[in-house]
Lab assay of single mutants.
Amino acid sequence: DEVEIEDFQYDEDSETYFYPCPCGDNFSITKEDLENGEDVATCPSCSLIIKVIYD
C-alpha cells in the first residue's frame, strides 16, 4: 500500500513518523530515513510494509 506522509503521526522527540498497521502495531520511518531517500515504512510486529508518499 501507499500512504501520504500527511497521514502519519509525527513524534518530535524521536523524529519518527508512525502510521497504524492492521495488526495493531505501527509502521514507522524516521525523518533521517526520509532525508536519505528511504520511502518504505515497516511494521516491527508483522511482515507488512507500506510505501511513503511525500514531496
Rank of each mutant, 00 (worst) to 15 (best):
G37T: 06
A41L: 08
Y10A: 03
Y19R: 09
E2S: 15
D1L: 15
S28K: 15
E15D: 03
V40P: 03
S47R: 09
S14D: 07
I5D: 00
D13K: 13
I50Q: 03
I53L: 09
D7S: 11
I5F: 10
E15M: 06
S28I: 14
G37D: 10
F8R: 00
F27G: 12
D39R: 12
S14I: 15
D25P: 02
C21S: 01
I49D: 11
E6M: 03
V3R: 09
I5S: 02
P44F: 05
S47V: 07
P20R: 05
E32T: 10
S47W: 03
V40F: 05
V52I: 10
D33R: 13
C43A: 00
V40R: 12
T16P: 00
I49E: 13
P20D: 02
P44T: 08
L48I: 04
I50K: 15
L48H: 08
I50N: 07
F8M: 02
P20K: 12
E6C: 04
P22C: 07
V3H: 11
E6F: 08
C23A: 07
S14W: 06
N26T: 12
I49P: 07
E2Y: 15
Y54T: 14
D1E: 15
F27R: 12
N36S: 15
E38Y: 05
V40E: 04
F18Y: 14
I49K: 06
T16K: 13
S28G: 08
F18K: 07
C46G: 01
V3A: 05
P44K: 10
I29D: 00
T16I: 06
S28R: 14
E6T: 07
D7A: 12
Y19D: 04
T16D: 07
E35F: 08
N26M: 07
E38I: 05
E32Y: 09
E4T: 04
N26C: 11
T42R: 12
A41N: 13
F18G: 14
K31V: 12
K51W: 10
Y10C: 14
S14R: 13
N26Q: 06
E15V: 03
T16A: 06
P20S: 13
Y54N: 12
F27M: 10
Y19A: 03
D1S: 15
C21V: 00
Y54R: 13
T16G: 14
Y54L: 04
Q9P: 01
A41M: 09
S28D: 04
Y10G: 00
G37N: 11
V52D: 02
E6V: 06
D33Y: 11
E2D: 15
E4K: 03
F8C: 05
Y10F: 14
F27C: 09
D33E: 12
Q9R: 09
K31L: 02
S14G: 08
T42Y: 08
P20C: 08
I49Q: 04
Y10Q: 06
G24C: 05
P22R: 06
D1C: 15
C43S: 01
V3G: 01
A41S: 13
F18R: 06
D33T: 11
N36R: 14
E32V: 04
T42I: 05
E2P: 13
K31T: 02
L48A: 10
L48M: 10
D13P: 08
D55R: 07
K51F: 05
Y17G: 03
T16E: 05
C46N: 01
E2K: 14
F8P: 00
P20H: 07
S45H: 08
E35W: 03
N26R: 13
V3S: 00
E35G: 10
D55Y: 11
F27D: 01
Y10V: 15
T42P: 04
S14P: 06
F8S: 01
E15N: 01
D13C: 06
V52A: 09
E6R: 04
P22T: 10
S45E: 11
E15Y: 11
I53E: 02
D39S: 14
Q9M: 11
N26G: 11
C46Q: 01
D11N: 11
D33N: 13
V40K: 08
D13V: 09
D39I: 01
D33A: 12
S45D: 03
K31E: 06
V40L: 04
I53T: 06
G37P: 06
F27A: 07
T16H: 13
I49V: 09
C23R: 12
E38A: 09
C46I: 00
E38K: 10
D1N: 15
G37E: 10
D39G: 12
E4W: 04
F18D: 05
P22E: 15
V3T: 05
V52N: 05
E4S: 07
C43N: 01
E32M: 07
D1Y: 05
T30N: 00
S45P: 06
S28V: 13
N36F: 03
S45G: 15
C43L: 00
E4N: 09
C23S: 04
A41V: 11
D11K: 15
D7I: 03
D11I: 07
C46W: 00
E2L: 15
T16V: 09
Y19I: 04
E38P: 13
Y19N: 10
Y17F: 07
Q9W: 01
F8T: 02
P20N: 15
K31F: 01
N36C: 15
Y19C: 04
K51C: 06
F27E: 03
V52H: 03
D11C: 12
D11M: 12
Y54K: 14
T42C: 09
F8L: 08
I53A: 12
Y54V: 13
I50T: 07
E35V: 06
D55K: 01
I49A: 12
E4C: 10
P22F: 03
D25F: 04
N36W: 08
D39Q: 08
P44N: 06
D7W: 14
T42H: 11
P20A: 05
K31N: 07
V3P: 01
D39C: 10
T42E: 13
C23T: 04
P22M: 06
D11V: 12
S47P: 08
E35Y: 01
D13W: 03
I53P: 04
V40G: 13
V3L: 10
E6K: 04
D39E: 05
L48W: 06
D11S: 12
P22D: 12
D1F: 12
A41T: 02
E38D: 03
D55I: 01
D11W: 02
G24S: 13
I5L: 10
F18A: 05
P44Y: 08
N36D: 05
A41F: 03
K31C: 02
Y19E: 06
K51E: 06
K51N: 06
Y17S: 02
E4H: 05
E32L: 07
G37F: 10
I5R: 02
C46T: 04
N36V: 08
C46H: 07
P44R: 13
N36M: 10
C43I: 00
E38N: 02
V40A: 05
S45K: 04
E2C: 13
G24A: 11
D7F: 03
D55P: 14
L34R: 13
I53M: 11
E4M: 08
T30I: 01
S45C: 07
P22Y: 02
P44L: 04
D7P: 00
E35T: 13
I29F: 15
E35Q: 11
D33I: 10
D33K: 14
D25V: 06
E6G: 03
D11F: 13
Y10E: 04
Y54H: 14
A41W: 01
D25E: 15
E6A: 11
E2V: 06
I5H: 05
K51S: 07
Y10H: 11
E32K: 04
D13S: 07
I49F: 14
Y17A: 03
A41K: 03
